[in-house]
Design a protein around this nucleic acid. Sequence first.
DNA 1: GTGGTCTAGACCACC
DNA 2: GTGGTCTAGACCACA
Lengths: 118, 118, 118, 118
Amino acid sequence: MDFNDKKSIFLQIADFFYEKILVKTMKDNDRVASVREMAVALEVNPNTVMRTYQYLQEQQIIYNKRGIGYFIAEQAYDKALAIKKEEFINHDLPEFFKTIDLLNINIEDIKKYKHENK
Amino acid sequence: MDFNDKKSIFLQIADFFYEKILVKTMKDNDRVASVREMAVALEVNPNTVMRTYQYLQEQQIIYNKRGIGYFIAEQAYDKALAIKKEEFINHDLPEFFKTIDLLNINIEDIKKYKHENK
Amino acid sequence: MDFNDKKSIFLQIADFFYEKILVKTMKDNDRVASVREMAVALEVNPNTVMRTYQYLQEQQIIYNKRGIGYFIAEQAYDKALAIKKEEFINHDLPEFFKTIDLLNINIEDIKKYKHENK
Amino acid sequence: MDFNDKKSIFLQIADFFYEKILVKTMKDNDRVASVREMAVALEVNPNTVMRTYQYLQEQQIIYNKRGIGYFIAEQAYDKALAIKKEEFINHDLPEFFKTIDLLNINIEDIKKYKHENK
DNA sequence: GTGGTCTAGACCACC
DNA sequence: GTGGTCTAGACCACA
């Protein structure tokens, strides 16, 4: 992870967890790396990781056991899917349609890029 | 224009011009509203408009005639299309594919949303 | 003439006259094109040409006969040479030396570029 | 720094950094003073420094670490040299040759001035 | 603490 | 009238 992106670092880290959950690498009640471990691993300020964890906790994707650590919440997969899907349909997709219209790109053409990308 | 978006105002104004050019409302050598006029029209500080204009000038979408004003550059359409297409293919599209994979959405499904949106 | 330069247009026009005088294309008491003619020829606002003429008049490079027009002043060549030489030695040259030092370029190397340029 | 020059302040500050890099006072990955520090040091508005930093960032002379600050980019020396050399050869030098031709100055004469200057 | 954006208002050179 | 630069000061998100 490089964090060169315009997106804030704490959100990029959050996406990292979303991904792990959506591909089922991380499952309900799995332990999450401690703030300090994560900060060292990512070469990032612990405050930044802390912020990610609080953000994920607000979304009920992880939960905290005081003095023990953070864990993946029950039904994290469903929640993550719902959150990301909502985001996709209400934000990404409309923008996507607007852009391809403006650029005169056909949806059919998109598929080609998909295969090229692979 | 409302500027409720998270994107910075000066970039939203830039996109406003990109759009005008891509739908061919503005054509080569058309005069662009003066910094002050634009600022009044958008209810925005002149400095903000200035920033947009310098940004567009760097991208060679507009050019300046000393003491007279800004004008749409030659081949602005081609340049705008190239810039936005590059952005779309190298940034938006990979992210798009990654997201739909994660969310288990098929490209075919996307088309339905398109029609619903219309 | 294109006036794309960062230098102001009226000074670029002034330089045009300096050059004519220094290569002796224009000589003492030659008539200078009228403000309007010049403005049309250069596709420039008459005010801009006017400013050039006033500037050259201040430097006593041209003089005005009321109702008749502008003319090259006596000894314009000597004056032009003196002005430009002063400018060169006190402004251009020090900057020139500073730059070649910074870029680690030897004066001897400069000669090569001269020949390449020709 | 005095900023008496006709050049804009933010570009003079940029040149200040170019110089530091070209004389190797500043090296790759060195931290650059924060916008606020620099503004205080130069007795200049933070916005002005900000503008310099963004200008240098576009030229890839410095880069930003989010929330931490600006740093000298990798190979900043090479880039700075290339930029300034390009400027010198394509802009300063042709003008230089034109001027000395007009003024009937020989390149050999230039060397004398160099020694007088020192 | 860091950068980033924006406003308000001023001043300047130039056309 | 035009753009261009700068100041002063504010507010925000982020690390």
